[in-house]
Design a protein around this nucleic acid. Structure first.
Lengths: 169, 169
DNA sequence: TATTGTTATACTCTATAACTATA
DNA sequence: TATAGTTATAGAGTATAACAATA
């Protein structure tokens, strides 16, 4: 794991790592003009999203879990017995991609595909006992990641954003 | 280009395509529980970001340009003569990836790498005349995409988000 | 005819590591 | 020693098409 500075999510837990690690000098760069990018919401949404993903992956590195995998585990837990098609539709993931995603989670013993009692084409998805136990710990770490975000963004601003975006998709 | 429905950005320009194309019936799906995802800002930021990218690509399909390419063109135009390292740092793109990105734009005659007058290791990036002219038209389409977003999100909410995120990265 | 899960392909993007030529 | 541009690789993710089994 290499060190990362500036725009990336900080590896330090809190506040100012000022006099701690004797931060190496970095090349000074000119502040550039963003041009019309400054008026495009998409640019800033993307920057925020990248920051969030990086912090999520780092904060949950002990579990080797990525945001997409997390979302799959959470939705299966909340809706046991659901089908792959329904899961894919809910999360906006391609059915085709979900296959590999579930293969991975299944190989790790976290999820299970059972035959659907009502439709022989589809699978009924559930968490294994290990999956439930592991997800409990994962959720705890994910909450810590969310705290990082609130800290970085300001708790008030984070709440505003959450409410504003909740009804979007 | 296949049809796309529901969560994706609508292909229709405005309002309600209700009685127009006699939309095909879609399988009815149960509304699933998002579980703790509902409290994670990252999930909704990701959904919004995906929507924005899709609408951007569709709205600018006549130019075959993607968000990353757009951001590169805009920042070069606003900071002629800048280096690849500075551009990469500003946009949060890996230096390694920027190389291919610029190769593509250069092949299309939009950008140019000139020798830096002060540092023989680095390049001074500029738009070509074609690049300037093309970008002008691209920016017009990008503005239309931004209008779609404001329409979808609500103009007021869009403004709030832009202000909230501008100072993030 | 349409849907479910699946396989396959192409492309974008992130994350790294390494190399060369310069500074 | 460090930086600039480059090449290469591995993996995630998107987009798309096709197929067999089933509805």
């Amino acid at each position: 794991m290499a060190e990362r500075q500036l725009p990336g999510p900080s590896a330090s837990e809190s506040g100012a790592p000022q006099a701690a690690g004797r931060a190496r000098a970095r090349k000074q760069r000119p502040v550039l003009d963003l041009g019309v990018l400054d008026g495009h919401l998409g640019y800033f949404v993307r920057r925020l999203q990248v920051w969030i993903f990086q912090d999520f992956v780092r904060t949950l590195s002990a579990f080797d879990i990525r945001p997409a995998q997390f979302s799959v585990l959470v939705v299966i837990e909340a809706n046991p017995g659901l089908s792959q098609a329904d899961l894919a539709e809910t999360l906006g993931i391609e059915r085709a991609r979900l296959v590999r995603l579930l293969d991975g989670l299944e190989r790790r013993g976290l999820t299970r595909r059972r035959p659907s009692p009502t439709d022989r084409r589809s699978h009924a998805l559930t968490l294994t006992d290990t999956g439930v136990a592991t997800l409990k710990r994962i959720k705890s770490q994910a909450a810590e990641h969310e705290a990082h975000l609130a800290n970085r963004l300001g708790a008030d601003k984070r709440d505003v954003l959450l409410k504003a975006l909740r009804n979007f998709a």
